[in-house]
């Protein structure tokens, strides 16, 4: 049974593509399209890794990191997907405890490698 990945992204097309790639890479993927869903899911489930877009409705990626690190007190690896040039958000994410980040346009293969690396740490 593969590792459990929580994929949080409101872009259905990209999420579908990444979902497909991660599943093909041997991971179990749960996709949530907004922050509220992510929050609900995290109160019930404990994924092995979280891949989250920064810009999401209801609950941004930054808030998600804060929620995971400070409220749930989880050390689950978090990889952030952000737009290129959004340096401030990336820095904030790292300050709050993100483990890695990847910029759009995303290379699905690169994401797969990063997820594997974080899980193997």
């Amino acid at each position: 049974m593969g590792k459990h990945v929580l994929l949080a992204d409101d872009d259905q097309l990209l999420a579908s593509l990444l979902n497909f790639r991660l599943k093909k890479g041997g991971y179990e993927v749960h996709h949530s399209s907004n922050g509220r869903e992510v929050k609900e899911y995290l109160t019930k489930q404990r994924p092995d890794i979280i891949v989250s877009d920064i810009m999401m409705p209801y609950f941004s990626g930054i808030e998600l990191i804060d929620f995971v690190r400070n409220d749930l007190k989880l050390s689950t690896p978090i990889i952030i997907i952000s737009s290129a040039g959004n340096e401030q958000n990336v820095l904030s994410a790292f300050e709050l405890g993100a483990n890695d980040f990847i910029t759009k346009p995303v290379s699905p293969t690169e994401l797969l490698v990063r997820v594997a690396r974080e899980l193997n740490k």
């Binding site: 872009d11 097309l13 990209l14 593509l17 759009k104 346009p105 995303v106 290379s107 699905p108 293969t109 690169e110």
Partner: peptide, 15 residues
């Protein structure tokens, strides 16, 4: 439309 959208979001070999 889908392909153009994905063109913006993907890079590397996928593109």
């Amino acid at each position: 439309e889908v392909l153009l959208d994905l063109r913006k979001d993907l890079s590397g070999q996928s593109q």
